Amino acid sequence: MGKSNSKLKPEVVEELTRKTYFTEKEVQQWYKGFIKDCPSGQLDAAGFQKIYKQFFPFGDPTKFATFVFNVFDENKDGRIEFSEFIQALSVTSRGTLDEKLRWAFKLYDLDNDGYITRNEMLDIVDAIYQMVGNTVELPEEENTPEKRVDRIFAMMDKNADGKLTLQEFQEGSKADPSIVQALSLYDGLV
């Protein structure tokens, strides 16, 4: 993909415009910024974590950033290329609610087996709590990752089998306004 070129080839721009919710001009602008920050044309896990640390200076986002990195890194080569970056950004910032929920499901399904187990969710929720640090005051019933996961599973795990399917996750998330709101945070920002 033209590693350190400051412009993408027209056919690449066209393809990314088809695969995302961005215009050709927006794709070019994002590429310019991506190459400025990642001259090699790729972003590794350490660089990704560094970006998260800028956004969450009062907590430790390392663990959460690693989980997000793994979802962005579609081809699992340990690096995020621009096409992976822009497609994930498109879903998280401008995707439909169902697209965002499928993306979030992939984030929580750490072993990619098609289910979110209690332990997988606990890993992610714990990482989120570490990331936000003491900057967020949580209600008593959610002031630990374990309590939050218990509440989520009580609401979403309809067949009580200890794991969530994509359908259970989507339906449960849509029924909880706070989850829908959290997924909409990026709307309109890009």
Rank of each mutant, 00 (worst) to 15 (best):
Arg151Ser: 14
Phe58Gly: 13
Lys163Leu: 01
Gly188Arg: 12
Phe82Val: 14
Ala160Pro: 05
Arg79Val: 04
Leu97Ser: 12
Leu43Thr: 11
Glu99His: 01
Glu11Arg: 04
Trp30Glu: 00
Lys63Trp: 02
Ala160Gly: 05
Val180Phe: 07
Lys9His: 05
Asn5Val: 12
Gln167Val: 11
Tyr186Gln: 13
Arg79Phe: 15
Thr23His: 11
Gln167Ser: 14
Lys9Met: 11
Met131Lys: 05
Tyr115Gln: 11
Lys158Glu: 15
Glu14Met: 07
Lys147Ile: 12
Met121Trp: 07
Gly133Thr: 01
Leu185Val: 04
Glu81Tyr: 09
Val125Ala: 10
Leu8Met: 14
Asp123Tyr: 01
Thr135Tyr: 10
Arg148Trp: 04
Tyr108Ile: 07
Phe69Glu: 07
Pro61Phe: 14
Ala88Thr: 11
Asp113Trp: 04
Tyr52Trp: 06
Val91His: 04
Lys106Thr: 13
Val149Gly: 06
Glu120Met: 02
Ile152Glu: 14
Asp157Pro: 07
Phe105Ala: 00
Asn143Trp: 11
Ser40Leu: 00
Met121Gly: 02
Arg148Glu: 13
Leu107Pro: 02
Ala154Val: 09
Ser178Lys: 02
Pro57Met: 08
Tyr129Lys: 14
Lys32Phe: 14
Phe56Trp: 09
Leu189Pro: 03
Thr23Asn: 06
Gly114Ser: 08
Ala104His: 13
Gln28Asn: 03
Asp113Lys: 02
Lys76Arg: 08
Val149Tyr: 02
Glu74Gly: 13
Glu171Phe: 00
Asp157Val: 12
Val71His: 14
Arg79Trp: 04
Glu120Cys: 00
Ser4Gln: 01
Phe105Gly: 02
Val13Gln: 14
Gln42Ile: 04
Pro139Gln: 11
Glu141Gly: 13
Glu140Phe: 06
Thr135Ile: 08
Glu26Leu: 14
Gly188Asp: 04
Ser178Arg: 11
Asn119Trp: 04
Gly78His: 13
Lys147Phe: 02
Ser6Leu: 01
Leu8Glu: 10
Asp60Asn: 08
Val27Tyr: 15
Glu81Phe: 02
Phe55Glu: 01
Glu142Thr: 00
Phe105His: 10
Gln87Arg: 11
Thr117Tyr: 08
Leu189Met: 10
Leu138Glu: 04
Tyr52Arg: 00
Gln54Met: 07
Leu107Ile: 14
Trp103Leu: 05
Lys63Gly: 02
Ile80Gly: 13
Thr135Asp: 06
Val132Glu: 05
Leu185Cys: 03
Ile128Glu: 02
Glu171Trp: 01
Tyr52Cys: 05
Gln87Glu: 01
Gly133His: 15
Asp73Tyr: 14
Gly162Asn: 01
Asn112Tyr: 09
Ile152Leu: 06
Trp30Tyr: 02
Asn112Val: 01
Val71Ala: 07
Gly2Lys: 05
Leu164Gln: 05
